[in-house]
Nucleic acid binder design. Structure first.
Lengths: 217, 217
DNA sequence: GTCTATAAAAGGATAGAC
DNA sequence: GTCTATCCTTTTATAGAC
């Protein structure tokens, strides 16, 4: 093997191909993600995952051992990416209204992405069987978003821009207002996804109400 | 049979007992409700329901025909009771703050009842398989609560008490703020249920913010 | 590592007696 | 209407060849 190959062999010792071909392991993970998120844990069969990945069932068991281990690998691995694009929007905005507006749009964008909704639904349904998974999901997703917003609101209060005596509560309720009815409908699989105009109205109303409620005296 | 028996025999023709003993049918419905809500549709077995009800599996099939029919009977039957105690709180209250306060407490009380949370979770998880069930649940639960509140807010706006130009949106976002973080945590099965003090703080904050945002000029 | 074939168990639904 | 006993399909998991 060539000299630069050293950086790429963090998993295998005896690989012969120099280009890291899409490994069966990754194919399995990808297929499992799709099948689990679409069907839920119980209704997803290992046969379906094997078929989707183009491998045999035994190959899956050789890699992951059992169904619940595979499920855990999928759900935890992707939990980090949830709501990751949120923080940048807070610090750079010229004024408060624009900052809240931008943050709200990113939040709804992430929250209403089909994969995020499916993930939420599955984690929720299986929270009894996988409690630690629900915990990780909560902390890396909803909790993190609320903490970031709370920190921003606390800074606004300290700077005298707004009056926010209880930033944690205010952050939680603001994000709750943003979710409003839309998210429930989405989780229940009802009706059409919200249009751009719906988003505009929702964000404008939530931000306006928040600024009205917390304006400095 | 006696003359008064006529009113009670809307289902049976050949009953011999005069007191309506807890029928097997009701025992099945009750057991099915418990098992379905605890385990979810997929993980709930007909064997478990039969055991819990103290009857044989065949008795269940004689009454309901199939698993999905039994599930539908359970979930739809109880959907009416969801949020039923809400409307009274609106009209009688002396002032707006007290009305919103009372309504908020009832809403959270109903929403955080263990059975309501379990129902929400199950309907959500099975919304793909039973779309019409999700629709009925939504309309009789979340939607109804939001509509009632919106009508009240529209009346306040018309009376000049508050300024609420978009009552539907305001109602949805107020209820969303009320759910805030608590409901998500609850759905994910995390941590302790909220204490009385938590409820007090949550309601006070949401009502205070709402009044601040929508006060008449 | 990967495949084909199979074991072992669970669960939805039905047959037939009473 | 109700029970016991059974069928048949699906599904997780494993054995053994290559």
């Amino acid at each position: 093997m060539g000299p630069q190959a050293a950086t790429a062999r963090d998993r295998h010792e005896d690989v012969t191909e120099e280009r890291s071909a899409p490994s069966k392991r990754d194919a399995i993970l990808d297929a499992a993600r799709r099948v689990f998120l679409e069907a839920g844990y119980g209704a997803a069969s290992m046969d379906a995952i094997a078929r989707e990945a183009g491998v045999s069932k035994q190959t899956i068991y050789a890699h992951f051992g059992a169904k619940d281990a595979l499920f855990g690998a999928i759900m935890v691995a992707r939990a980090d990416h949830f709501l990751e694009p949120l923080p940048e929007a807070v610090g750079d905005a010229p004024d408060v209204a624009a900052a809240l507006d931008g943050l709200s749009r990113r939040y709804l964008e992430v929250l209403l992405a089909p994969e995020a909704v499916a993930r939420f639904r599955v984690v929720m349904a299986e929270s009894g069987r996988f409690p630690e998974l629900a915990e990780v999901f909560y902390r890396s997703g909803p909790r993190r978003a609320a903490d970031r917003l709370a920190a921003y609101l606390a800074a606004l209060d300290a700077g005298g821009v707004l009056r926010v005596p209880d930033p944690e509560m205010a952050a939680g309720q603001f994000l709750g207002a943003l979710r409003g009815d839309i998210f429930i409908r989405y989780l229940l699989g009802l009706g059409e996804p919200p249009t751009e105009a719906d988003i505009d109205r929702t964000v404008a109303h939530a931000v306006g109400a928040f600024l009205g409620a917390h304006r400095a005296r």
